[in-house]
């Protein structure tokens, strides 16, 4: 359950102040599937960063699963990111020197899980993305679509309730993009809340909910 009320995010650029988010009110139920759309610079990524607890709003309240997050310290926010949220980025953000397996393992390593149960979870996650045969490959030995599916396996390996994807198909061709969207929608079908930022109207059409943004506000 996501509840945003009166969220403001301002950036100081030189003398001028950019209002990246203006008075955002938004409620999303568990298992929702929302597409955030809007022109470049309208505040989509900023909204996603705040939802993902990577950034703090200047004003407003954000309750995640009933917990008021704006007053939490960094440690507690890191814990929520670790346990409740999975990120998928346009640029994949895989660690180049690590294999697919090790990349997927990272969130569990950070969570301090013991090696044995960790490996089992990673295997399941990779299998769910159809990547079992690619487990030992490094990112430069994988196609774009495979890389993004490794990133999705990584985002889901901790079994979070919320997946945030910022233009997950932006760097992919149509076929690979469709694979990735299918993978994300499959997760949503299993009950995960899915929020996707996209420029692609076709992708936006598939979401149950469209959040149209312009100049920092939801239309």
């Amino acid at each position: 359950m996501i509840e945003l009320t009166g969220i403001e995010r301002r950036f100081q650029v030189g003398d001028t102040e950019v209002r990246a988010l203006r008075q955002i009110d938004l409620t999303l139920a568990d298992g929702d599937y929302a597409a955030v759309m809007g022109p470049s610079g309208s505040g989509k990524s900023t909204l996603l960063n705040i939802l993902g607890l990577l950034d703090r709003p200047n004003a407003g309240r954000y309750r995640l699963d009933g917990v008021e997050t704006t007053t939490l310290d960094e440690e507690a926010r890191a814990r929520l990111r670790r346990e409740r949220i999975g990120f998928v980025f346009q640029a994949f953000h895989l660690v180049p020197r690590l294999t697919a397996f090790e990349n997927v393992e990272l969130p569990l390593v950070l969570a301090g899980m013991a090696p044995r149960p960790r490996r089992e979870r990673v295997r399941q996650s990779l299998a769910a993305m159809g990547l079992t045969a690619r487990a030992g490959h490094r990112p430069d030995q994988l196609s774009g679509g495979q890389r993004q599916r490794v990133a999705i396996a990584r985002a889901t390996v901790t079994e979070p309730g919320l997946i945030l994807a910022d233009e997950p198909t932006g760097n992919l061709d149509r076929a690979a993009g469709e694979d990735v969207v299918a993978a994300l929608e499959a997760l949503n079908n299993k009950g995960l809340t899915l929020i996707v930022v996209t420029h692609d109207p076709a992708l936006g059409e598939r979401a149950r909910r469209r959040i149209q943004m312009d100049d920092g506000a939801i239309l």
């Binding site: 960094e74 440690e75 990111r81 670790r82 346990e83 953000h93 660690v95 969130p107 969570a111």
Partner: peptide, 16 residues
């Protein structure tokens, strides 16, 4: 730098 950002997104704490 980007890797550190990623680790933080994945829930790494400052002392990690």
């Amino acid at each position: 730098t980007a890797e550190v950002g990623l680790l933080k997104a994945l829930g790494a704490r400052e002392h990690d």
